[in-house]
Amino acid sequence: MLLMLDLNDPRPLHEQVSAAIKRAITTGDVAPGDRLPPARDLAAALGVNANTVLRSLRELRDEGLLEFRRGRGVSVLRRPDGRAALRERVRDLLDEAAQYGVGPEDVLGIVKELMKESP
């Protein structure tokens, strides 16, 4: 399972881990039915505490994306819906915009410009 952890993300660590796992599910790196690696393996790879990863996994379970099964570990239940997936990508976009010194308002302006171009 390939995860990309955002180094500049100001959110709490467990939310960052959730976002990384969600991104992997959204991009199709892990498909519904696939099992996730054990939480402690993920924790060791990400360099975070195993409890942090468990917290993220529970959050994603509560969102209905993951399924916990006794003896079979954690597996993907379904992909996030369009809005949730877009939310993560817009967040990435805003992060990237910030790198260029472009604020969220300006990004919104760009979006509105594009809306006018393609009605």
């Binding site: 399972m1 390939l2 995860l3 990309m4 952890l5 955002d6 180094l7 500049n8 690696p37 054990p38 393996d41 993920l42 790879a45 990400l46 992060d95 790198q99």
Partner: peptide, 15 residues
């Protein structure tokens, strides 16, 4: 090749 973003830390875990 996987597109690497310098602002992100890529990790791959498998068993």
């Amino acid at each position: 090749l996987i597109d690497l973003d310098t602002r992100k830390r890529p990790v791959w875990v498998s068993t």
